[in-house]
Amino acid sequence: MSAIVMNQVVKTYPNGTSAVKGISLTIEPGSFTVILGPSGAGKSTLLRMMNGLETPTTGTVHVHNTLLTRKTLRTVRRTVGMVFQQFNLVGRLNVMTNVLTGRLAYRSWLGSMLHLFRAEDFEIAHEALARVDLSEKAWIRADQLSGGQQQRVGIARALAQKPSIILADEPVASLDPLTSAEVLDLLKSICKNDNIAVVANLHQVEYTRQYADRVIGINAGQVIFDGPPAALTDEVIEALYRRPEVIEEANHVAATTLAYA
């Protein structure tokens, strides 16, 4: 059973911007897939359609053979973790509570109103925190942590969901190179040891070559490359990052700068 199946997915925003222009793809369980492409290529929209944060204009998304609809949304999301560029923790709450939010979909709204959780949920959250090596920070406010630590808390929150898929939307775009490598190592080890499919958006080619099992190259809302990182030649990269209007503008800027030098 495939983890995610997208069929002819199109996303056109109300303002007429067409972010994704008919993409079909299949994500296999336990794989580490990187969606690579320049900013504005539609990577984020594509990823966000995998857990219904965006609804496709046309086309379908199946997660574990369940069609994503308004009705199935919450049950599907329960087992799909998500990691964000800006971490999206609640800074005022402590690390433990942020991780425990990963358990909310398994609990009734009434039970969770008072921030009371079952012992088993604490155990799961504790495990998740230990996994990202932040157990000792459990009772510290999330906004007291460094960026890299906050992203690890974000990963722990995803792990607390006991997910079979983790979606990572530019997980290292706000981090320095050292922490970026730590976070990607962590995601990779989670993928391999826990057999969780990871789909990550990245814009750095080096990281993609280093971590991906499979690369999906996106530009202007279309898949223009799909294969193992070894097949990611310089020609492919060049095609992936080619943006005629940007190149033209760059030439123009260079010319004007020269004129005034």
Binding site: R77, G102, S112
Partner: peptide, 29 residues
């Protein structure tokens, strides 16, 4: 409140009241 915080709660499959108690109210305490 930053829309990412609400999205994070949506993404874990939390309901409306859970979203309020874990993202909305704590953020504006």
């Amino acid at each position: 409140v930053d829309k990412g915080r609400y999205e994070a709660l949506d993404a874990v499959g939390a309901g409306f009241s859970q979203k309020m108690m874990y993202a909305g109210w704590p953020s504006i305490l």
